[in-house]
Design a binder for these strands. Structure first.
Lengths: 105, 105
DNA sequence: GACATAGGCAACAAGGAGGTTGCTTATGAC
DNA sequence: GTCATAAGCAACCTCCTTGTTGCCTATGTC
């Protein structure tokens, strides 16, 4: 599911549990569903659902490895989200610039 | 000013309607609820709810002006969201660097 | 004062999100 | 082959989100 909409990506980031999972995967090592569930107080099924949401948004990718499924961080989509926020911020800066130019005219 | 959690900010950004409203406000001019509703196909009440979510996340601020309420873009919170994504991305870059160092050792 | 405009409040409905439980399937270890 | 482990599937529950409608209040205009 490449190229999710910005809103979909932000929605995927908009849950503390998912944000924690993503941060954990951004450490580098791909992890299995069970491994990601350990330590937390969620069932494996709940973890699975969160992982599917993250995957649907393009933030992580999965690969079967034997009887495990390993999920890995995918940097591209986070970069796109950053770029989106950059555009919003730049739009704001430009608007300020125009206002300033108008006032000083 | 309330300091919303990253997840709360991303959740607020995670709806296409709200994202559109935010982008519109980032153009510079503060706008009233009615003004923000025109053109869209939502009722005023629906727009109001979205604005309260954005305000709760610290992305916009409201000010009464006569019988109107004007909502204005607040750049700080978008900057914080960008910084959060920057940290995730940097964590990833560092992990790659460590992996590389380990492999080349 | 009468009227129009901007907005708030509350109740409601539909649908989705987050989570659980129980059972089944697939793979690896012995 | 037997057993343990990893994960999928499906049903179900509860609560929140999104959006509506109807009515009330406040402010500006004539």
């Amino acid at each position: 599911m490449l190229n999710a909409s910005p809103a979909e990506v932000f929605a995927a980031l908009g849950d503390p549990t998912r944000l924690a999972i993503l941060a954990r995967l951004a450490e580098g090592e791909p992890r299995s569903i069970t491994a990601l569930g350990e330590g937390g107080r969620l069932t494996r099924q709940a973890v699975t659902k969160h992982l599917r949401v993250l995957e649907g948004a393009g933030l992580i990718a999965s690969r079967k490895a034997g009887r495990e499924v390993r999920f890995a961080y995918r940097p591209d989509t986070v970069d796109e989200a950053r770029a989106y926020l950059d555009r919003v911020a730049r739009q704001w800066d430009d608007a300020l610039g125009q206002l300033k130019a108008f006032v000083e005219k």
